[in-house]
């Protein structure tokens, strides 16, 4: 176990992994409860286009992914508000459109390199020191924003109309949530990769929801599952030479299945 930390990339991997594990459920709970889970998937594909653009233009792919993801999230929210097209259709257009763009950009850079593969599925070995700083600073920003606007986010999520009547700036809160989601998705790329981010954001939350608890307890439970999966996933993938992102997500799925089989019986009101 000690041998693990002899490698600089492992330390960087753990640092970034723990930050991502902490912020993913914090955003995930609001996305899941608002039935916005698909947005995580969409933004991850947008991030891939960002990564491809970064690789093409030789700028930090993580930075490019963040910019692409945040800008797209704002456009998606505006499209949803304008009601000119269905929210889900907007997401589908962005998902396939950005994937198409990513593929075209990749073909311009002469195909899939090792780099791109690690962005697709996550690989802690490619986490650079500058990535640690970016994830650290923006991760802190995400946590701070969720804490500062926690009660507004909860109210808007459970009952948007009543929140509006209570004088809460619901449009601002909705926009904030989607921007925070876009940041979380982009930041998670180095560890779990574009194709597996949505799972890390959604599965720990859905698992925690199996146990009818208070809102705060649900978040803590989701955090525990997420942190456990990421830490154990990194260690296991290191020793067994497996894909980091894949191992982490499989662990979250494993815990989800266990809770489904052992969870309390459904006594919910219909």
């Amino acid at each position: 176990m000690i041998g693990l930390f002899q490698y600089g990339f492992m330390i960087r991997g753990f640092e970034v992994g723990i930050i991502i594990a902490a912020i993913a459920p914090l955003i995930g709970i609001f996305l899941v409860l608002r039935r916005y889970s698909l947005i995580a998937d969409t933004l991850s594909h947008v991030s891939l286009a960002g990564v491809a653009l970064g690789l093409l233009l030789k700028i930090n792919p993580l930075v490019a992914a963040i910019i692409a993801s945040v800008i797209s999230s704002i456009v998606i929210e505006r499209l949803r508000l304008s009601k000119r097209i269905f929210g889900e259709s907007a997401l589908s257009i962005f998902l396939s459109g950005s994937l198409a763009l990513a593929v075209v950009l990749i073909s311009l850079t002469h195909g899939f390199g090792v780099d791109l593969f690690s962005y697709l599925f996550g690989s802690i070995t490619t986490v650079k020191q500058v990535d640690v700083y970016i994830v650290g600073i923006l991760g802190f920003f995400v946590v701070a924003a969720v804490l500062l606007f926690f009660k507004e986010l909860v109210f808007v999520t459970i009952d948007e109309e009543a929140a509006r009547v209570a004088g809460i700036p619901t449009k601002f809160i909705n926009m904030l949530l989607i921007i925070l989601a876009s940041l979380t998705v982009a930041l998670a790329i180095p560890i779990v990769g574009v194709l597996l981010i949505a799972a890390l954001i959604v599965i720990p939350v859905v698992t925690a929801l199996q146990y009818g608890q208070s809102f705060v307890k649900t978040i803590f439970f989701a955090e525990a599952i997420s942190l456990f999966s990421v830490i154990v996933g990194i260690v296991v993938s290191f020793y067994l030479n497996l894909s980091t992102g894949g191992t982490i997500v499989l662990l979250t799925v494993f815990i989800f299945v266990i809770t489904l089989l052992t969870g309390k019986k459904d006594h919910r009101a219909h």
Binding site: I158, D159, E161, V165, A166
Partner: peptide, 29 residues
């Protein structure tokens, strides 16, 4: 100064909140 009781069906009854957490939202304004 305004209290609002929406149609009950507009709120997801499976939302993971306790009664206390839910009523506390009334204090947010």
């Amino acid at each position: 100064k305004i209290g609002y009781v929406p149609q009950r069906t507009t709120v997801d009854a499976n939302f993971p909140v306790t009664v206390e957490e839910f009523v506390m939202m009334g204090r947010y304004s």
